[in-house]
C-alpha cells in the first residue's frame, strides 16, 4: 500500500510539533519552578551572609557593604510614610551618637518606596545624622527579602548577619544589646 504525499508530510511534521510542545511545557514548568523557589526562600536569617549592596546617600556619598568589612553595620530599612518607623527614629539616632566616634560601627538607613522630599523632611525632623539614602529600584529591599518596614539587620565585621529585627526597636538599650556583643 502506497502512502499519499499528504499523509507523508503529516507524519514528518508530527515529531517537530511534539518537540515544540514538550519544550514549551518544560519552559513553562521551569519558569513556574523558579518562581516557587524564589517565593519559598523566606526571609534572611541570622548566620546568613549579608547580601552586598551599594547605596548612594541623599548627600551623594556612595556606600558599599563590601567596603565596610571590618566594621559592624546596622542596616535599617524605613519609610517616611511608615508609622512604626517613627517609634524607633529617635532611638536609632541616639544609639548612633553613642557609637559614631568609635569608627568601627556604622548605621545605614535605607528609605524604601519613598519620595526624596518626604524622606529628607523625615530625616530632618528626627535630626538623623547617620548616612541615609533611597532604595533605588527597591533593590536592597528585595536583596534582603524584606517583608515590610521597619526592618533592621546587624552585620558583623565578617559580613555575616548576626541580628535581624522585623519590628521597631523599643529602646536605645535594645539597639545596644544587638551591637555590644560584636564589639568585644
Amino acid at each position: 500500500m502506497n502512502q499519499s504525499p499528504a499523509t507523508t508530510n503529516v507524519s514528518q511534521s508530527r515529531p517537530w510539533g511534539k518537540i515544540i510542545a514538550w519544550a514549551a511545557l518544560l519552559l513553562l514548568l521551569t519558569i513556574v519552578g523558579i518562581g516557587l523557589i524564589k517565593a519559598q526562600r523566606g526571609q534572611l536569617a541570622v548566620g546568613d551572609m549579608a547580601p552586598n549592596f551599594t547605596l548612594t546617600t541623599f548627600d551623594g556619598q556612595e556606600i558599599s557593604l563590601e567596603a565596610l568589612r571590618g566594621k559592624v553595620v546596622l542596616l535599617n530599612i524605613w519609610a517616611s510614610w511608615c508609622v512604626p518607623c517613627k517609634e524607633e527614629a529617635d532611638d536609632l539616632e541616639t544609639a548612633w551618637r553613642l557609637y559614631r566616634d568609635r569608627g568601627d560601627v556604622l548605621f545605614v538607613g535605607v528609605a524604601y518606596s519613598d519620595m526624596d522630599t518626604k524622606a529628607k523632611a523625615y530625616l530632618k525632623s528626627y535630626n538623623t545624622t547617620y548616612p541615609n539614602g533611597p532604595d533605588m529600584g527597591t533593590r536592597i529591599y528585595q536583596l534582603y527579602r524584606a517583608t515590610g518596614v521597619p526592618e533592621t539587620y546587624v552585620i558583623d565585621r565578617t559580613g555575616k548577619l548576626v541580628y535581624v529585627k522585623f519590628s521597631p526597636f523599643q529602646s536605645v538599650a535594645e539597639i545596644q544589646a544587638a551591637i555590644e556583643p560584636l564589639l568585644k
Binding site: W81, S113, M115, Y141
Partner: peptide
C-alpha cells in the same frame, strides 16, 4: 502601582505611601 500595596492602582490606593506618590505626580 506602588510596591507597598500590591494589585491596587495608585489612583485608588488609600495608603499614605500612595498619597505621597500622587503628590509627587502633581508636583
Amino acid at each position: 502601582y506602588c510596591p507597598v500595596c500590591e494589585n491596587i492602582p495608585l489612583d485608588v490606593c488609600p495608603t499614605k505611601a500612595c498619597a505621597d506618590w500622587r503628590d509627587e505626580i502633581r508636583l
